[in-house]
Amino acid sequence: MSDNGTFVAEVRDVPGGEAINECIQCGTCTGSCPNAKYMDYAPRKVIYMIKAGMKEEVLSCNTMWYCATCYLCTARCPRDVKPTGIMNALASLSVRHKLTNKKTLTPIFYKAFVDVIRNNGRAHEGGMMMKAYMRIFWKKLKSNPIKAFGMISLVKMLPFAFSLLKRGRMPLKAKKIKDRDGFKAIIAKAQSLGGA
């Protein structure tokens, strides 16, 4: 039976989502997931909803953003479905379709992290945090300025940052790779080749 064009086919075609059709809805993944209670729909249910074609509900929910990629579900799944891979595929697809969940901050942090890497070839915690908080600030300023200034409470993060800084565990300067041109060219080409 061909399922081309369906949502389940779209998930299956992202690397990581290949085995979705093997799921027998046993619930082992949900029972193993340390973060299930935070998720709009726990892992087993999300897989069910994908099969039922509930694309918007799934891509806009918070589930994949609460997945810590601990792979406990993947290690235990009796059908080798690799639910972690499905979570990763959903994160990618929700960004592709601009349906990213608005209530969690994780996608903002992840995008800031990726932007730093695209630019430098290396991660930089300090730079990434700054970027993420600036974006959150602007978003809040546009919707609710009072909330934006509530972000002043972030100063309570300073002692934590300082505890790392004084031990040389939080460099202020970002590291960059040498062949940034080559690196950026690889990324540009990968992007132009489209979704894998």
Partner: peptide, 22 residues
């Protein structure tokens, strides 16, 4: 020599092919 960040979990917000190339 000249290794780059592997991308780790957050890179899943990009298309998988890009993450794989990184």
């Amino acid at each position: 020599e000249d290794w780059n960040c592997c991308g780790t979990t957050p890179y899943h917000v990009a298309e998988e092919l890009e993450a794989i190339c990184v």
